[in-house]
Amino acid sequence: MIRVPPALIAAALGLGLWQGVVWLAAPPPFILPSPARVAHVGWENRSLLIEHAGVTLSEVLLGLSLGIVIGALAAIMLARSERLGSVIMPMLVLTQAVPVFALAPILTLWAGYGMVSKVLMAALIIFFPVLSAFHDGLTRMPPGLSDLSTVMNARPAQALLRLRIPHALPSLAVGVKMAFVYAPIGAVIGEWVGASRGLGYLMLLANGRAKTDLMFACLAVLAISTVALYRLASWCLDRLVWEDG
């Protein structure tokens, strides 16, 4: 018997429900197009969708690289000095209370309508999850390992490199996986505020012209590529990072 992945079953059920609602309630297509219609429009506009998805994807990947590197380095810096960490961490938590959506116009003002403001937006949105997951791992050393490194007269730099960082890598992996889910949100918010390319831009354009089917197609492309990216990242990370037990 062939085993069907549960995620596929859930997706099929969702699409079936959606198609059923369209058949029964028969809303006008500009309110709720049927999944079949969305698929059709998506296929007709495939080159347009691919072009804009490519832009968004590059923004997402650049934002991910930037956000992960900065988040991880910041986590190491904060973990090295307990005092610095106790001063900076609450401030960082406070910055998370500011909705990133509110920062998008400012970023666009500073960095322009091009790719840079979207990359920054994506990096900004993932910076904190990466930092906090990694910082958590770095500061939660098993007490036995700290004892061992004390008795062995470890140099602080070596203890960081050989004990704390490797020990915290599974925590960093958790943060990075989250980042792969959040980064596309950042890029699309950036595109909504001001852009001439990208899936977010195309969605606004389609929305403005009541092309609801194209908007749904954009959304589908965004969702599918985000899930694909996340699965790829999880697959790689699970092979790269040591496992407990």
């Binding site: 007269n153 470890a154 140099r155 070596q158 050989r162």
Partner: peptide
């Protein structure tokens, strides 16, 4: 050999 490694 962790001890030696940790002492550099």
């Amino acid at each position: 050999v962790l001890g030696a490694r940790l002492r550099g």
